[in-house]
Amino acid sequence: MKKEGNTIINIRNLDFQYREHGFRLQIPEVSISGGHKIAVLGPSGCGKTTFLRLLAGIHIPQHGTLTVDGVDISQLADTKRRNFRISRIGFVFQEFELLDYLNVLENILLPFRINSALCFDAEVENRAIRLASEVGLADKLKQRPTDLSHGEKQRVAIARALIIQPRILLADEPTGNLDPKNKQHIKMLLFEQASQTCATLIFITHDHSLLSGFDHVIDFEDFVQGGSQ
């Protein structure tokens, strides 16, 4: 999986442990090249989500180095780490995590509503409309999440993740709540959007039927040291 040049994620001797329940994740060495599509495999509780949180700078490793897009995020202060996340990381969740009180367009624009570091203007709104169109929701901009199917909700979540034009797209089991047909659609949509924006896609799944098409697969069973997540 090592690749010279264009490395966007570089991990060396990473050691992270939750204070509350003692779950420990150790990753000796991982390098991910920019623009690649990475599948992260592993059973529940093996640290996949923790890995994404570490990449996003939500958790800080106790030991080792974690470089994302050339920045050692463990060295950043809280505000800088958040700004880093805002500008470079897009999140897609298993449960979509859309806000019921916002319509589709407002949900896509959410990162711009809650981050003063992001500048909202007409171009952003146009981008949101274009993204909604690309994920097949052009005619549902004014609808609320409660009026959408699971597949449509996940499309909104993908558009929301892409609105900030991230360098890295973190998808935490985005197909976990979908039927087999929608699973493939969502995966392909993520592939397509990641390719268009040259974003690196980290895709968590434990569904082996979805592994085709990824550049690399990381199996997390190897990294778990003990405790439970």
Binding site: R82, E97, L99, L110, S116
Partner: peptide, 20 residues
């Protein structure tokens, strides 16, 4: 709580969450 966590993941500071 989940809504707030999502916002935090999307880069919203805890200060803004409290402000909201």
């Amino acid at each position: 709580q989940r809504e707030m966590t999502t916002m935090f993941y999307l880069g919203c500071s805890r200060g803004i969450i409290w402000k909201l």
